[in-house]
Write a protein that binds this DNA or RNA. Structure first.
Length: 111
DNA sequence: CTCGTGACTCCCG
DNA sequence: TCGGGAGCCACGA
């Protein structure tokens, strides 16, 4: 049985709709751990396989894919593009357009 | 139980 | 604009 944190992370990731993305930090906050961004990435490794999560919809705070070219970068990019997400010339996603705002995220108003 | 690991983020120069 | 360093925490061995 996964911890509450893990369940929350899974739940948040699962509510990200197609054509939208979220960030590790956002998901972590929504799960109740403002500083747990790294755990989210770690969980994606472990949980995405076990819980069938749309891991490709999670990117870093800069709107860029964190995976190395040899670690699934191309896969994630193609999956996102097939859902309608557009990448800029420098391979970054315009978060103002594609970021999925998690409902109830208490940190939603920052920035 | 302790330790290593990581697809992150923020803060300063 | 860019890079380095520290903080953070769950999971598996």
């Amino acid at each position: 049985m996964p911890s509450i944190f893990t369940q929350q992370v899974i739940e948040v990731i699962r509510m990200i709709p197609e054509g939208r993305v979220s960030t590790y930090g956002r998901v972590a906050r929504a799960a109740g751990h403002p500083l747990g961004a790294r755990q989210v990435s770690w969980l994606l490794h472990s949980a995405s396989q076990k819980y069938h999560l749309p891991w490709h919809r999670v990117v870093n705070a800069k709107g860029r894919i964190s995976l190395p070219a040899a670690g699934g970068y191309e896969l994630q990019k193609s999956l996102l593009e097939s859902e309608g997400v557009v990448f800029s010339a420098d391979d970054t996603i315009d978060l103002d357009r594609f970021l999925f705002e998690v409902p109830g995220d208490p940190y939603f108003t920052d920035l």
